[in-house]
């Protein structure tokens, strides 16, 4: 990954007439965080970064802009928005296109092949109490950190997000330019999390989730970080009718998590942004991956790959399986 190449490419993009601004990652001001950066000026591309710390999914900003959504036929063309996308981010964009959340014509995707982003929980444990901004990069399959004037190299398995260890699409599936070289698909670990969890007894599964659901503080950070949770008025926060009560307790939290996961069934692209955004380490991906597996195994569907596929939750086949029906 050549950061200079990427910045130069971003500069070129920004000098184009049809591009309004570029959404990218900027160096953070605190610990292992990076911050989203909105650039209009080609002269400012030095502020851009791309590293294992760029875990947030910038596609989330696209749907906040309502006029990026499919415009009316014949409406005057507006400026395009450039956005930096990792493999998983690009899948989110594809899914947004499927759902007409964004208009492909209005986007300019800068593809960033990615070798995995760090899990904030894991690095926090490796480097407790770090407040100074940290720099990081990939080197020969490992992750390197520069912190306190020192360079520390750690194997991916120890610091990367679990989802990145068996990432299926490290390279963007949709991009207008790809300034840097593609990376090779590598499986650092074959994750059996879902099937292993299923081995547990029903009672044990509930004990686990009971603890988890009790931890959740319902801050909605997971929902806000998700590029596909872009409802302007989330059903689960609405007062009338109140699907959920506002109180933070086991019942409402459990219902929130079931509902959120269900809303993302066949839509979640497994970027892991939700899980990384959670301040209390709720394993949101376990629910997401469970449903993603069901959707794939039963219906052969994977979201975020084909912009022309009909949305999964609006489709069916007359011969869909029905083994549990009385």
């Amino acid at each position: 990954m050549d950061l200079e190449k990427l910045r130069a490419a971003a500069g070129n993009v920004l000098s184009r007439d049809d591009i309004g601004y570029l959404i990218g990652w900027g160096v953070g001001s605190y610990g292992f965080r990076t911050a989203p950066l909105f650039l209009r000026d080609a002269g400012e591309v030095h502020r851009l970064t791309f590293s294992p710390l760029c875990g947030s999914n910038l596609a989330v900003f696209l749907t906040m802009e309502y006029d990026v959504a499919a415009p009316a036929k014949g409406a005057a063309a507006k400026e395009r928005i450039a956005v930096m996308v990792k493999g998983c981010d690009s899948r989110a964009v594809v899914q947004q296109i499927v759902e007409r959340g964004v208009d492909r014509e209005r986007l300019f995707l800068v593809g960033c092949p990615c070798e995995g982003v760090v899990d904030p929980g894991k690095v926090e444990k490796k480097f407790p109490g770090t407040v100074e901004p940290v720099r990081a990069g990939w080197e020969n399959g490992a992750v390197v950190f520069w912190t306190g004037g020192q360079k520390v190299t750690l194997p991916g398995e120890e610091v990367l997000s679990a989802g990145c260890l068996d990432c299926s699409h490290p390279n963007p599936v949709l991009a207008d330019i790809m300034p840097c070289e593609e990376v090779k698909l590598r499986r650092l670990a074959a994750r059996e999390d879902v099937s292993m969890f299923e081995q547990k007894s029903s009672a044990d599964r509930w004990l686990y989730w009971k603890r988890i659901f009790n931890t959740c503080i319902r801050c909605y950070a997971c929902r806000n970080a998700c590029p596909l949770c872009y409802c302007s008025d989330c059903l689960l926060e609405r007062l009338s009718p109140a699907w959920l009560f506002r109180s933070v307790n086991l019942s409402e939290n459990a219902a929130f998590h079931l509902a959120r996961a269900f809303h993302l069934a066949g839509r979640c692209v497994e970027c892991g942004a939700c899980e990384r955004a959670c301040p209390v380490e709720v394993p949101l991906m376990l629910l997401n991956r469970k449903l993603a597996r069901e959707v794939y195994e039963r219906y052969g569907f994977q979201p975020g790959l084909d912009p022309d596929s009909p949305p999964f939750q609006a489709a069916f086949r007359p011969d869909d399986s029905e083994e549990f029906i009385l």
């Binding site: 759902e99 007409r100 302007s232 609006a314």
Partner: peptide
């Protein structure tokens, strides 16, 4: 209309 996000699932269904 105010909360509709225009995803078109309803149209498909």
């Amino acid at each position: 209309e105010e909360t509709c996000r225009g995803c078109g699932y309803c149209v498909q269904i």
